[in-house]
């Protein structure tokens, strides 16, 4: 599966994170992070997003993370969802929810 279009998941609610993935051909991962808990958890959020992208096989993308204190499990789920949406998956069960990211 390959990121073909912009994929977004999540909300700006407290304890959630909004992830936007924008495909590009080269240049690796360009991550922009905003967070209400940036000073204490910025490093961990960044690591979690990058690890999730690696497991999904995303090599080149512009990534915007707008976090309002989401826990790690939420971050993983939102990255995964944004990816599948960006891959153009529809609701026909072709994607492996919870299967790629553990």
């Amino acid at each position: 599966m390959e990121l073909k279009a912009v994929g977004t998941a999540g909300t700006l609610e407290s304890s959630d994170v909004m992830i936007t993935l924008e495909p590009r051909d080269s240049g690796g991962i360009d991550l922009t992070l905003e967070s209400s808990v940036l000073n204490q958890y910025g490093r961990q959020i960044k690591a979690e997003v990058l690890a999730s992208l690696e497991r999904l096989g995303v090599k080149n993308a512009k990534v915007i993370v707008n976090d309002h204190g989401a826990l790690d499990c939420t971050i993983k789920a939102r990255v995964e969802c944004a990816f599948y949406r960006g891959c153009g998956c529809d609701m026909d069960g072709r994607f492996d929810w919870g299967g790629v990211i553990r």
């Binding site: 000073n39 204490q40 958890y41 910025g42 490093r43 826990l71 790690d72």
Partner: peptide
């Protein structure tokens, strides 16, 4: 265990 160990502020 719920939220992770916070980094020290700089």
């Amino acid at each position: 265990s719920l939220v992770g160990k916070p980094d020290d502020l700089q």
